[in-house]
């Protein structure tokens, strides 16, 4: 099953990445090469595997306690576009 250049463009849109027309050809080639590699996984019989979550990995809970953090200004200082205590972004909704 070969991945087409249109599919690469579709995936790029999903990943919020712009890909140039020159890149699309190379990426489709890479996709197909690596997917051929992945195809071999179908040889593994996984019908007996019911639960892929390892019970040992169940994480412990901590108490939900309020703590203070003095990093608010340091965090906001990294904003590419800031308006007082807000991060500014370009307009999202069209005006009615």
């Amino acid at each position: 099953m070969a991945v087409t250049e249109d599919e690469v463009k579709h995936v790029a849109r999903l990943a919020r990445l712009e890909v140039g027309d020159d890149e699309v050809v190379a990426l489709a080639g890479h996709f197909n090469l690596i997917l051929t590699h992945f195809e071999r996984l179908q040889e593994v019989d996984t019908s007996g595997v019911v639960d892929v979550v390892d019970a040992v990995d169940v994480t412990p809970w901590r108490n939900d306690e309020v703590a203070s953090w003095d990093g608010r200004e340091r965090a906001l200082a990294q904003a590419p576009d800031r308006d007082e205590d807000y991060f500014r972004v370009p307009q999202i909704l069209e005006e009615a």
């Binding site: 996984l41 593994v44 996984t46 595997v49 892929v52």
Partner: peptide, 8 residues
């Protein structure tokens, strides 16, 4: 599929 193979 990959997660299941890893479980094995």
């Amino acid at each position: 599929k990959a997660l299941k193979v890893v479980a094995i």
